Simulated scan of single mutants.
Amino acid sequence: MTEQFKKDVYTGLNTPNKRLPSKYFYDKKGDALFVEIMNLPEYYLTRAEMDIFENQTDDIIKALQISPDCYFELIELGAGDGSKTKKLLQMLHQQGFKFDYFPVDISQNALDNLEADLKTELPGVSVIKKQGDYFEILASLKEIKKLKVILFLGSNIGNMPDEVATQFIYDLGSNLHPGDKLLLGADLIKPASIVLPAYNDSKGVTAAFNYNLLARINRELEADFDITNFRHEPEYTEQDGIAKSFLVSQADQTVCIKSIGQSFDFKKGERIETEVSRKYNDEVIHKIISETDFKISYKLSDGKKYFANYILERT
């Protein structure tokens, strides 16, 4: 992990438009901050998807077209705290479905916390946690030719440019068999007045979440970022449907990262892109999956039409 972290930071800070991968938000402190973000009044995404999982759980199960008599593997990519998934797990367990739940996450801390919660809340559910790269884990499970239902929730697909999202879903399909399902969470395109506050809350928690990325580089890669010399700045336009977050240098400065053995210069006003969050409609989703082995079989939306869960089937 450390070597890949160093490589990604080195590559991202050596590009003309500096960027840092958002996956590195999630260490122990980042996990806790994101849980706090999900509970903020401005952060509609979690509530909107939770609305679907709380009020349409039966519809999800029916749309997945799984039989209580047929064993399947329920694999969640980027499981986090599993708050929404618990609603589905509870209903599946109550209705007597035969399955194992495989939460997959880059954060071992998140997996350990989720496993502990499920042992208390849903002790009858089989949990097999997997820490690491999504595709390596899926490849290791591919040889077990059992029905697979993949969960990729929270609009995590939105962290990728459309062409990367297409490749990601294509690669998912290459690790699955015909008939396997993908439940894909997608934040829908909506006005900036709704979207921007979700990435720039009044309490400054989202800003702290971004600053923690620099603090993590300081801690783990022996860097000397002065975090007070950076300002968190999001942007979004409804026409583009893409929200971005940046950390903006407040002065001309040089940052040394000892473990990489290099210093990086920042001009005043220069930005580091830390997150991209794509918003979707049916047209965009259809375009993304048009070159993959998936087809849309069902769509569910929350009451405000802020969010959608698309059920895709591997053909």
Rank of each mutant, 00 (worst) to 15 (best):
D240H: 02
Q90R: 08
I128S: 13
I37A: 04
N210Q: 06
I288R: 09
G82E: 10
T15C: 08
E121Y: 12
F102N: 01
L118N: 02
K299T: 15
L64A: 08
L111F: 10
P123D: 08
V35T: 11
F230N: 04
Y211G: 01
E136T: 14
P123I: 13
N109M: 05
C256I: 11
S193V: 14
R19M: 10
D58M: 12
N175P: 12
V9F: 00
V35I: 13
D240E: 13
N200E: 00
I61E: 09
L214A: 04
E222I: 00
S249E: 03
M91I: 09
F307Q: 02
S126A: 14
L147A: 08
S22V: 04
P41M: 04
L221P: 00
L213E: 02
D112K: 07
L77R: 02
D226L: 00
K7P: 05
L45T: 07
K268M: 09
Y24I: 06
L196P: 06
L138I: 12
D133K: 14
Y280S: 05
D162H: 01
F307D: 11
Q131P: 01
I288S: 02
K305M: 08
L147P: 12
V104M: 04
L74A: 14
K146L: 14
Q108V: 03
L184S: 07
S301W: 07
Y71F: 15
K148P: 10
V248N: 04
P103F: 13
T292I: 12
E143F: 09
N200S: 04
V195S: 13
K190L: 02
T254A: 04
Y199K: 02
I285E: 03
T254D: 11
R231I: 14
L89R: 05
I288K: 06
L92E: 01
G269L: 06
R231C: 04
I66V: 15
L247Q: 03
A198Q: 01
D27G: 10
T166I: 06
G12A: 10
K7E: 15
D31E: 15
E76H: 05
E49S: 12
A192R: 14
N281M: 03
L312S: 03
G261I: 10
E291I: 00
E220G: 08
E273T: 11
Q94T: 11
I66F: 06
